[in-house]
Simulated assay, not measured.
Amino acid sequence: MSKPTKTEAELVAMARAELQVHADCPDGIAIAVLPDGDSWEFRTEADAPTKAKPGYPECVAMIVQIGDHLSKQYDVKG
């Protein structure tokens, strides 16, 4: 049985909503969906000042965790 599909924008919005609940992340973190074989994962990007802010590494780790559980629930629309 296949998983429901979401667009990249929908998946990123879901991740951002979950981040607001769990973490106090600095602004300026870009999230993208990277296809990975039959699955996908989140990739983050930020400028140097954002990366230097407190909590940045924890937020990236949280985004990876969110992507891991969302990728088990949803496929990304190609």
Rank of each mutant, 00 (worst) to 15 (best):
T7Y: 09
T7W: 12
E8D: 12
E8Y: 06
E8Q: 03
A9C: 01
E10Y: 14
V12T: 05
V12R: 04
A13L: 14
A17G: 09
E18N: 13
E18T: 13
L19T: 00
Q20L: 06
H22G: 10
H22Y: 04
D24S: 06
D24V: 03
C25A: 01
C25M: 08
P26A: 02
D27F: 05
G28N: 15
G28C: 13
G28I: 02
I29R: 00
A30K: 08
I31H: 07
I31P: 10
A32Y: 14
A32T: 08
A32E: 11
V33F: 02
D36F: 07
D36G: 03
D36P: 11
G37L: 15
G37M: 15
D38N: 07
E41C: 14
E41W: 15
F42H: 13
R43M: 10
E45V: 12
A46S: 02
D47Y: 06
D47P: 12
D47K: 12
A48I: 07
A48W: 11
A48G: 15
A48Q: 14
T50E: 08
A52Q: 03
G55H: 09
Y56E: 11
Y56N: 14
P57F: 06
P57D: 12
E58R: 11
V60K: 06
V60G: 09
A61R: 02
M62F: 01
I63Y: 02
V64Q: 07
I66G: 00
I66W: 00
I66C: 00
H69L: 02
H69K: 05
L70S: 04
S71D: 08
K72P: 15
Y74L: 12
Y74I: 10
